[in-house]
Design a protein around this nucleic acid. Structure first.
Lengths: 347, 347
DNA sequence: GTGAAAGCGCTAACAA
DNA sequence: TTGTTAGCGCTTTCAC
């Protein structure tokens, strides 16, 4: 761990180039209205000195930080147990760096962390926030809102509190579910069951809605509650088999659930897909490709979601600058990304 | 996306409390040498105004940022395809927030990103860096070094370039591998095979070393090269079975590899663990628990690694302050975290 | 123990 | 087009 050498300042560059600090500043920030010859001299000086602007000094006056916070609640282990979050982060990171913004990661574990995050956000350390809010009654959204920071949500927030000025990005959980069930029906399956996720998560609720869209008249006993884990999938599958031995298809709310269901199906001697066809959701690779047989599932563009979230936020931030009250409406409140069905061997 | 309200400054707090800015500053930063009565007044004013220090202004003078960069190379998909990285991040995040430091995430995809990261690090935006360097000839370490930022590495860096002043944290890949193989041997297995990972990663190389520690005399045909993926595990397992049909145990370099091997073993009619015992590495939950049968594997404390990395870095940063050249040696160069064998059903 | 004042490095009016 | 100047909000000597 070495010492930090004193870094060159604007002043130093100015002196070396034989110009004023203002000129250097202009050149450094997208030169405009600086004679070419001078600009070139400045650029050379910058190069020679290895000058890098001091972001703290810059922020102090511009009130911009070129930084965005990503807030995620960690206890919802789903966020962490699977690569979902990582992929989302990757998308966000790409978009942010493409626009020269830094990514500040804020992970929360509970109440005490909420206070911290609220303080940080309200403290004006970042220009905006990307928030993952996957649960009903999640305190995070309210917190972020009261911090008064421009925000885009990942996943449809659950408030029906009239205010629909929230920007969010979600995948088409409902439509994806519909396509899964349609696919199953198209295979000639008539007794299609559904294993839900934890229904306090909007994604799980939406997938159930999608199932119902297609099977409005479904026997309620064909619906069993899971929890997005494979253990939950096993339990639900047993229930289902006990209640409706004649079922010939299962739409599982996610891939882990499907993996559990698959195990029980085999254990009970049901052949997949011959006796029972199975479709999952997520296309979580390490799981979907590893099941036996490989899982047919609904893929969402997770990285794309992340990228889009960042893009919408950044766009909103830019809009702030012109500050034209007459300007046409801002970012769309919610954006839903399409899903695609990935055919493998279970349906 | 609402507007940012003007936030109260130190000045405002000072005025309200009827003291000078200096006094407020003292109170806000671990008060010392301020009369209780005054301090109390100040604290109340802070509370009432909802004052939060402006970090930019503070950084400008202290040259500290209370921020640490986490640098990870993304193309090495392993980092992103599994929950490994997320868990590590969690550990880092916990430790950093416990010490009031922010986590700035820097993800890289290639050459061009390296330049960006180098610039950022050299730009003095953060107090230190946590770098994941898993590959041989990874340019990142050199980059970070030349940026002159205090750094702790995740995973043993591969340079044998004399300079062993690098601080790093790794799990005991070699010892873990030994314990896996010992376990297999303890089961009475005599023809133990090993499927390696990509040997340009130190973790894979170290696990192979561990295998060799125990089976120095192993028939070279009992070692097949994998790549940390299940597909690679399948290929290697087929090879192994073709070359040495009599093998009775396999130590796979990671869980994904083991999952692939398991599939081939079943395909070829070998019973696990009766005919062939299998041990993996990582204890990557969504995989190790989902295999059929559930995988016996070597667990590493991934979150603990993250936490430790952050702790070592922070400790190093603190040490910088006293700046006592006479002070006893700094952080240990390398710290190796123990692994534990998790018994499930494959061995 | 407390306050006054000098700057940290930069941007943004405003002059020239 | 370029330079001068006044801060941005904070910490930190240095007097008192």
């Amino acid at each position: 761990m070495s010492e930090t050498a004193p870094r060159p300042t604007l002043e130093a560059v100015a002196e070396r180039a034989g110009v004023s600090r203002a000129t250097v500043s202009r050149v450094v920030n997208g030169a405009h209205g600086v004679r070419d010859a001078l600009a070139e001299r400045v650029r050379r000086a910058v190069e020679e000195l290895g000058y890098v602007p001091n972001q703290a000094a810059r922020s102090l006056v511009t009130r911009r930080h070129q930084a965005v916070a990503v807030v995620a609640a960690e206890p919802e282990t789903r966020v962490f147990a699977d690569p979902y979050f990582a992929q989302q982060l990757r998308g966000i990171s790409k978009e942010l760096t493409a626009h020269d913004n830094q990514l500040v990661l804020l992970l929360t574990e509970g109440r005490e962390d909420h206070a911290r995050v609220g303080r940080y956000l309200a403290g004006g350390h970042v220009d905006g926030a990307l928030v993952f809010s996957l649960h009903l009654h999640d305190p995070l959204p309210g917190l972020v809102r009261s911090a008064g920071v421009p925000t885009v949500f990942g996943g449809r927030p659950d408030w029906d509190d009239g205010r629909d000025d929230v920007t969010y990005v979600d995948s088409d959980n409902r439509g994806g579910a519909r396509s899964a069930v349609h696919h199953l029906a198209g295979l000639g399956r008539t007794r299609i069951a559904h294993i839900t996720g934890p229904l306090d998560q909007t994604s799980a609720a939406d997938r159930l809605e999608g199932f119902r869209d297609v099977r409005a008249d479904a026997d309620p006993r064909l619906i069993a509650r899971g929890d997005f884990t494979s253990g939950g999938g096993e339990r639900a599958m047993r229930e289902l088999l006990d209640r409706c031995p004649g079922l010939d298809a299962v739409f599982a709310a996610n891939d882990l659930t499907a993996a559990g269901a698959l195990r029980v199906l085999r254990e009970r001697g049901r052949r997949v897909p011959d006796d029972v066809a199975v479709v999952g959701f997520d296309d979580m690779l390490p799981v979907a490709e590893e099941t036996d047989p490989p899982l047919t599932t609904v893929r969402q563009d997770i990285e794309g979601m992340g990228r889009l979230m960042a893009r919408l936020l950044l766009r909103g931030l830019d809009r702030t600058t012109p500050d034209d009250a007459e300007a046409p409406p801002p970012a769309p409140p919610g954006v839903i990304l399409p899903t695609t069905l990935v055919h493998r061997a279970t349906a």
